[in-house]
Design a protein around this nucleic acid. Structure first.
Length: 328
DNA sequence: AAGACGGGGGC
DNA sequence: GCCCCAGTCTT
């Protein structure tokens, strides 16, 4: 990993934020791309917000991107581009929680703070045979206490890196490599043959299905777009005029609704795309794209701006939209 | 304490 | 189809 051994807190911060709830293989390209475009926190702070979101496009959890920009600007303007060098000060920054603060503090400043991430939860739950669910307050307290007690205070960065590497490569979520594990003789879960049962998690999320019908009226090689600003998924990404339904709805009915909005004339020829499904952790999005080529500019798009189709590639869109644009 | 928030990959 | 991922923020 390109950030390994790096001491630059900016690079550590950037890599850790990118890797929040994200696999290394997925985040790697984004990290390299960001460093290439923004070598320093000053460059990131000075960047156009749309450009930053475009680089983040497809990575998900877009509030990370918003907070990244916010914190870069704060460091650049209020802290003279110097990254805070205490755990408490780092933790104050937007988008940085206990995990990322401990990672930056230990990797960049050799401060004795234990990282507690998914790997650490899993490794400690197994080695110490913690049967308490780790997604409860009680379970988290047990793991946190263990992690802080086990931390090598002399080399916290090395220790933190090691336990996470160990969790990622040996003590994996599925099919852990217990046969070659150096902790085999010390692992409660291995001894009691409950490795596959740990860690215990209780909560499960309900997935709701949403039905999106996007309109792509193409007029003089432009289409209406707008930034998603409501408190919903894909905040700060762009979208086309959208009609959302609570259930699957025939295209004819959607088009009638669009006609009532002034989005198109009833006699306009339309092209209906197949259904694109996008599975989020908590929602299932089923999207249909309805394209048409109106003879005159439709009126009912007050909240949208007409963007050249060739310029769409500079705007950040949700995955499901970029997938359709790729086929379009 | 519980939800909201993306997207991809393994099995 | 379900689970997990180098989590954080809001309610």
């Amino acid at each position: 990993m390109p950030w390994k051994g790096i001491k630059d807190p900016y690079r550590i911060w950037l890599s850790e934020v990118i890797l929040q709830q994200t696999r290394v293989e997925q985040g790697l390209k984004y990290y390299e791309n960001f460093i290439h475009n923004f070598p320093t926190v000053r460059d990131l702070a000075a960047a156009d917000e749309k450009k930053v979101f475009k680089l983040w496009e497809g990575l998900g959890y877009y509030s990370r991107c918003k907070n990244l920009i916010h914190t870069a600007r704060k460091i650049s303007t209020e802290l003279n581009s110097r990254f805070p060098d205490s755990y408490a000060a780092i933790l104050q920054l937007k988008g940085i929680g206990p995990y990322t603060a401990a990672a930056i503090a230990s990797f960049a400043f050799n401060l004795p703070h234990a990282v507690i991430d998914g790997n650490v939860f899993r490794v400690l739950a197994r080695v110490f045979g913690i049967r308490e669910a780790i997604d409860t307050t009680a379970g988290k307290k047990i793991i946190t206490a263990l992690a802080e007690q086990l931390l090598d205070k002399k080399e916290p960065g090395t220790y933190n890196q090691a336990i996470m590497d160990f969790g990622a490569t040996v003590c994996r979520p599925a099919n852990p490599d217990c046969a070659d594990c150096p902790f085999q003789n010390h692992c409660v879960a291995f001894r009691e043959d409950i490795v596959a049962l740990l860690p215990v998690k209780t909560k499960k999320i309900a997935v709701r299905t949403r039905y999106f019908y996007f309109f792509l009226p193409i007029y003089r090689a432009t289409v209406p777009v707008r930034e998603r600003l409501s408190k919903d998924i894909w905040q700060h990404l762009y979208e086309f005029p959208l009609i959302e339904k609570a259930a699957e709805t025939p295209a004819a009915e959607i088009i009638r609704a669009a006609v009532r909005k002034g989005w198109l004339r009833q006699d306009t020829l339309t092209e209906i795309s197949p259904v694109y499904t996008q599975k989020l952790s908590h929602q299932l999005i089923r999207s249909v794209f309805i394209a048409c080529r109106p003879a005159a500019k439709p009126a009912g798009f007050e909240n949208y701006r007409w963007e050249k189709i060739t310029a769409l590639k500079t705007l950040p869109f949700p995955r499901t939209i970029t997938q359709h644009l790729d086929n379009f």
